[in-house]
């Protein structure tokens, strides 16, 4: 969902014409225009565009038969 307004720890988010008032206590530095994951009234993470593009690149490589998978993380 896209952040369209923020006042303190309260944010207004929007997706497909639906607007919700949520709280952003758990994620620092939420700004208008950010895309966020919302669960039960709370922003729980900001979406990372660079990582999204990297995943899409990996998917395309995978489709072409280049068998590369992300490195395991601890």
């Amino acid at each position: 969902m896209k952040v369209i307004n923020i006042e303190g720890v309260e944010a207004e988010v929007e997706q497909g014409g639906t607007r919700l008032r949520v709280r952003a206590d758990f994620v620092e530095d939420v700004n208008v225009g950010d895309y966020v994951l919302v669960h039960a009234g709370f922003v729980i993470q900001k979406l990372d565009e660079n990582e999204a593009l990297e995943t899409l690149r990996l998917l395309e490589m995978l489709g072409m038969g280049v068998q590369s998978t992300p490195v395991a993380e601890g």
Partner: peptide, 9 residues
């Protein structure tokens, strides 16, 4: 091992 496909989140 543990891998993370959902790195954008």
């Amino acid at each position: 091992k543990v891998e993370n496909q959902y790195r954008r989140v």
